[in-house]
């Protein structure tokens, strides 16, 4: 058990080991991990959400949107990173490309299902009241689709954080995964400390996104406190 105590000491010392040369601090590596993951999620959002929302709005392309999600789940992240390294070499470009490849499909699938699944009667009523297609999208379909769109974003974000740390195994240095990949310098306590930080980071990201989702969800859609743990995996789109 004292390994775990040492791990917390390691975290307390911000990743420095007494009597050893200065190492990158834990705070620095955590921020770097967040930066790499953030860029990946951001780029994926910009690519995926407009496509998914638009396909859902015009009710076209269900075959592509749904099957994209199915194929995505089958992509092992280490394999995607490895193939990327073969073509692009080790570097941030390869990591970000892998993150985008892994994050875009679940975002598209869920955004599509979210918008496509908005009650047609509601849309017809809005059209009857004279709303244009754009107004229907902005005022009706997007707010009603928020829970499912966010389910996709959260699934993707989870994958991205996890893959960012795995990137260390493929030689990319600059994330918390470095510590895990370098037991010689950091010893077991450091590796455990980094693992605890990675786990905490993933949970924090997950809860933060759940909070954002709560803020964006229209009041009428909020079911009292029951939905917050249930959106982790896009099972809804699976059963649809």
């Amino acid at each position: 058990m004292h390994n775990f105590l040492d791990a917390f000491k390691f975290i307390g010392h911000n990743g420095q080991i007494r009597g050893e040369p200065r190492l990158p601090t834990l705070v620095h590596l955590t921020l770097e991990t967040l930066k790499i993951a953030g860029i990946g999620i951001g780029l994926a959002l910009v690519i995926a959400i407009p496509i998914g929302v638009w396909l859902g709005h015009i009710h076209r392309g269900s075959f592509v949107a749904i099957n994209l999600g199915n194929i995505w789940r089958a992509l092992p992240s280490l394999a995607v990173l490895a193939i990327g390294v073969a073509f692009l070499g080790i570097g941030l470009g390869n990591v970000e490309l892998a993150l985008i490849v892994l994050a875009v499909p679940p975002m598209i699938t869920n955004a599509y299902v979210a918008i496509d699944g908005v009650d047609r009667d509601v849309v017809d009523a809005a059209r009857g009241m004279g709303l244009t297609g754009w107004e229907i999208l902005r005022q009706l379909e997007l707010p009603l689709g928020i829970p499912l769109i966010f389910a996709g974003i959260r699934t993707a974000a989870l994958f991205v954080v996890s893959t960012t740390t795995i990137a260390a195994l493929t030689g990319y240095s600059g994330s918390l995964g470095d510590i895990i990949n370098n037991e010689t310098s950091y010893h077991l306590s450091g590796v455990l400390g980094a693992a605890i930080c990675i786990a905490a980071l993933a949970l924090v990201v997950e809860f933060a996104l759940a909070g954002v989702q709560r803020l964006l969800t229209p009041k009428g859609l909020k079911v009292s406190g029951r939905e917050e743990v249930s959106a982790l995996v896009p099972v809804v789109s699976e059963l649809a």
Partner: peptide
Amino acid sequence: ERPVLIITSILYTIPSLALFELLEP
């Protein structure tokens, strides 16, 4: 249902690299 969902969700959220290392000792 709820306790099982909460525990399994947390397990699912922990990145694989971290979980493997945490189990090892």
